[in-house]
Design a protein around this nucleic acid. Structure first.
Lengths: 204, 204, 204, 204
DNA sequence: AATGAATGAGGGTTCATTCAT
DNA sequence: TATGAATGAACCCTCATTCAT
């Protein structure tokens, strides 16, 4: 019942691929605006400009397309950030650039934020996969930085989840709720926090 | 639809109060288990042991009881943490105890976590109120600690949201997903991160 | 999933009982006219004069009401025949009266014939129950007649199914397809066949 | 909708004939397993190993292929029995062999039984044709036997339907439901019943 | 002949809410 | 207050059939 569900619904023609893609794009908008439960399959097909039945040529169910969407967007986010970060000189700068990139990404894809939030309850596998991948990437970075002596050693696992948690919540706060503060500034503040903690800089 | 229409449905008799209470308690379980959309009013009344129609004697709608629940639980969480933290010697210790308390709280009330997550989309007012209150409490603490020289000065606003974000995500990770690590240990790690940042402890 | 399905949908008030009854009666007409698959729940509620949703107050599904109907009608048919036969002087006369009663019954309830036919594939349990009960009744009669010496001894089981088979098929032929021959005449012919077989009456 | 519109879809090439045949064979399995309404055209084409659209190259509709199938199988059954019976020494022996053959046939083609049952409501013309042909064959046999003095005279029409009815029902009972009793034994019992009726063998 | 994508009417089912008692 | 029957809008999904290639 949860078996790989790669359903024999993969398009075999170029036309089919195009239609499937239109549906995915439409689903991003529909789910992003209304949330999973309020979204309607007919809303997706309407936005995609195809007939209702066409939906079921490519997806088994509303759940399935939602899952597909979560995976798809999770990849997009990760690769977008990775690209932006690739030429960072050191880990802390990379952290800062990554955070900034993440907030910008969310600002450009508000629907995505909502979609991933809901995924916890609707497409739990994809949801966990998303966070686990993100955290794993962070963890690898922290470890590498640790090995190079750029940061101290410690519980990289927990740290990576903690940093990701900041990013997510700040994404919500400063990308969803309130766009008045530039991403760079938020990223700067947080990076400083991560780097230096709260200690008085020159404690006596 | 999102306006907290303080309905004129407040019970006047003792019997009425009891019934309303049964409904609220039942709603916590129903919403916690199924989430807002999958939950059914009939499920709530069934758990409460009253007839379906009785629900509308006390609540205008499914949305209303959900809102009431979010506010109620948000208060419970805050006061539970406040109590646990009240006798902390200093801010950092308080931070650690608070984080630990928070994780414990989520472990004991998994439904609550889910309810607040969904509130973002279903009862946005109550949801923002929840996070804003939490962040404000943090902010006040940070500011006070700053004034006392216990921590350095900085953008307390952003910091408070960042720290809260860690807590939320770690709550998910180490209370929802995986309970194998003791809350105290997680709290310790994070507090250390907050306090000291990632800098090598004895840089040359 | 097939558990007794006595679903907690039993009406608790007199009004409820009346509504459930209206639905059953309407279902008899709808299923009889259109067959299970072509019949619509909305057709049933329309005929019953209630709202669509009311259906699901009393029945879990279209399948469930169909099953209920088969059982109900099977009982009706059996008791109708039993009543007609009760004062027969001997077994052969009873056979004849029973067959006649059966054909008359089918003529008055053409829908029922179709319903039971389809039940084989839609509500197999109820279907088997129907035929098994009928055959058991026949069998008991044959056995009793055998014990009294009214008929010879033999494989009552197979005989009872054979006789029932005649009745069913003749019901189809002379009640469904063609009503020109009076039931009594058909019953007479068959009884004679059952009683005497095909042997020349005065074989040399 | 029930008129056998001898469609202009008869294949002209050898390849076409082969494809049409594959579809018919696949339809037998699909309809036999699922029944008319649950069966899907796509199920048929899938089993046949052709594309969905190909179906409509050979058949006007789902109804049409079903009709074609009923006729085809009705012929098969009749000729199979006829063959088995052809060398019977007398009518009663022929009856017995025919009944035995029929039960064996149903045991080997359970799908066919279901298909013909459903035909009453889906392809009524073909259904009546089927039963009428069978009955006519019986009738001719009875008449001939009567003329020869092998059986007494009587209402051959009703008798033929009655005997056929036994066969059908016993087919269901001892071929579909329960295969534990050998066809020959059932045939024997019934033939005896037909031949001798229920009369005590040595009446005074 | 064969393919497979596209269509859309149709129907079963859910459930928040209302209402009569 | 409490009950539970009644309502009907809403929506997911199926699948026979058509059509462009």
């Amino acid at each position: 019942m949860n078996q790989v569900s790669s359903s024999n619904k993969i398009p075999k023609t170029a036309r089919g691929k195009r239609t499937r893609d239109k549906l995915l794009r439409a689903a991003e908008v529909e789910f992003g605006e209304k949330g999973f439960h309020e979204a309607a399959v007919s809303g997706i097909t309407y936005r995609a400009g195809v007939a209702l039945g066409t939906f079921y040529t490519y997806f088994e169910s509303k759940e399935e397309i939602f899952q597909a969407l979560v995976s798809f967007m999770s990849h997009r986010a990760r690769s977008w950030i990775a690209e932006r970060v690739s030429d960072a000189p050191d880990r802390l700068t990379a952290e800062q650039m990554g955070l900034e990139a993440y907030i910008e990404f969310v600002r450009q894809h508000k629907g995505i934020y909502r979609i991933i939030s809901e995924a916890e309850f609707v497409a739990n596998d994809a949801f966990r996969e998303h966070y686990t991948s993100f955290a794993a990437a962070y963890r690898a970075n922290l470890e590498e930085a640790g090995n190079r002596g750029q940061i101290r050693e410690g519980d990289y696992d927990t740290w990576s989840w903690a940093i990701m948690g900041m990013a997510v919540t700040l994404g919500m706060r400063y990308a969803e709720w309130d766009e008045s503060i530039p991403p760079a500034q938020i990223a700067q503040t947080i990076t400083d926090l991560i780097a230096n903690g709260l200690r008085p800089l020159k404690p006596k």
